[in-house]
Design a protein around this nucleic acid. Structure first.
Lengths: 177, 177
DNA sequence: CGTCAAACGGACTCTGCCGTCCGCTTTTCG
DNA sequence: CGAAAAGCGGACGGCAGAGTCCGTTTGACG
């Protein structure tokens, strides 16, 4: 496999950029035609680099998830597990908030390795916080991501912080009576 | 407008039943063909009674929402606003749990009068509970429905009770420190 | 510069779905 | 019973989106 021709490289970059933008704005259901139009190429060019629309989606998601992975690594390295967890949640949500359609895209890539990796890291963060007593134990680590993701995804853009705040409150262990 | 022929009445009933079942199982995106197949009629018969697929969806939703409306009325009539709210939430979610796709169908019928009516009733229930001090005041009544609906909709079937429990905990006013 | 493989994109196919049409069947009612 | 009206559903049209084909263009390289 030799290197791509320079025009092909440029087009590939444009496609990835346009796809990231389009998926972020409109979610995973934007048509390939729309992406190609944004990239200024024919849609056949998209399919030459990515065998299916799904492959393109996964490529974009993997790219965007790198930032989240960095946040997760930092959270796992931090001293206070409880604070690390809430800070991780806020930072990650802040990222998703910039690209509103991304969450739905990630949902559709659950089988993807990269997505699984993030999920696994997130679970570790939760487990650490649970062991430290910062999160109630009657919910599985995986469900915590679900819960927060769902609330974030459904909240009106202006209100998501308050909604997430409420869930975080609910996740704290009930004070002993 | 004279009455329907008896065979037409029977088919109409079958279509409504099949549609309710299909929408509940598979969500609002089941094809009209699928519904017609379940009802044992041609899909043209469906379109004869309902001008569009959306009209059929709305009819089904209106029908199913009657039960929810009854719950809401009961909650508004109850003495303790706080208890009435939580009981209403649990009862309504129990209904949606039986027909998992229904929630998404309701989402798609937000403009429908019946849906608006339920939303309005739900808001009144929340307002009452807020006035009674059972729910924190830093969230709008409409957002409470959003929040609970989102969590319920995204939760794995076996876990939704726990997830809703957590949100309810988060919705209680923070204990004064 | 000239050749050739790589890349391009418009046109095409295929699939799934909504909604309509029209010739045939069934019910109704005198 | 028999005509008229109501109902039926298979076939059709149209649309949108995914993925393919192929004649044309363009960059790589001697």
């Amino acid at each position: 496999m030799t290197a791509l021709r320079v025009d092909a490289q440029r087009n590939l970059a444009r496609v990835l950029e346009a796809a990231a933008e389009a998926f972020a704005e409109r979610g995973p259901d934007v048509s390939v035609d729309e992406i190609a139009r944004r990239a200024g190429v024919g849609h056949a060019t998209v399919f030459r680099r990515f065998p299916t629309k799904d492959a393109l989606l996964r490529a974009v998601v993997r790219q965007r998830l790198d930032d989240v992975a960095a946040l997760a690594d930092a959270a796992l390295a931090a001293e206070s597990p409880g604070e690390a967890f809430t800070e991780y949640v806020w930072a990650a949500m802040e990222l998703y908030a910039r690209d509103r359609g991304l969450l739905e895209c990630v949902d559709r890539c659950l089988k993807d390795e990269k997505t699984q990796e993030i999920l696994s890291l997130s679970e570790q963060i939760v487990v650490r916080a649970q062991k430290a007593g910062a999160i109630r134990r009657d919910i599985s680590p995986g469900d915590v991501s679900n819960l927060i993701g769902a609330v974030f995804g459904a909240a009106p853009a202006a209100q998501w912080r308050r909604h997430v705040e409420i869930v975080l409150d609910g996740l704290r262990p009930p004070k002993p009576v």
